[in-house]
């Protein structure tokens, strides 16, 4: 699986896949960490526009990335969550760790 992403001066936007389960989560974990280190990312954005499904493996991956960014004082934002993904975020208490932005602010 290949993930689409954009990088711009310390900022990484990851377009998450249609379904985030254990398979997708472990690939995203690896790829995101590689990009964060290589591009010295300070600001990480997960763009959920394409995501219809996420289970607890996705939550583990997001908490892990939030910790990783936290060590270096970086920030993590989640954008464009559909109702289902929003529900999963809320039930898992993710909004305490990751800033959820309702409307995308495309720059």
């Amino acid at each position: 699986m290949e993930f689409q992403y954009e990088t711009k001066t310390g900022c990484l936007r990851i377009f998450t896949p249609r379904e985030i389960d254990e398979c997708a989560a472990s690939e995203m974990r690896e790829e995101a960490d590689m990009l964060i280190d290589n591009y010295q990312i300070r600001h990480l954005i997960f763009d959920f526009s394409n995501t219809e499904f996420m289970d607890s493996s996705g939550i583990g991956m997001l908490i892990g990335r939030s910790r990783k960014m936290g060590y270096t004082g970086g920030s993590v934002v989640a954008e464009n969550l559909n109702g289902r993904v929003q529900k999963i975020f809320t039930l898992a208490g993710l909004p305490k760790l990751i800033t959820v932005v309702k409307e995308a602010n495309h720059d």
Partner: peptide, 14 residues
């Protein structure tokens, strides 16, 4: 260490 969230059974229950 494997970044498991520990929410599996909770989600099944919910």
């Amino acid at each position: 260490e494997a970044e498991r969230s520990g929410m599996g059974f909770s989600f099944m229950e919910m």
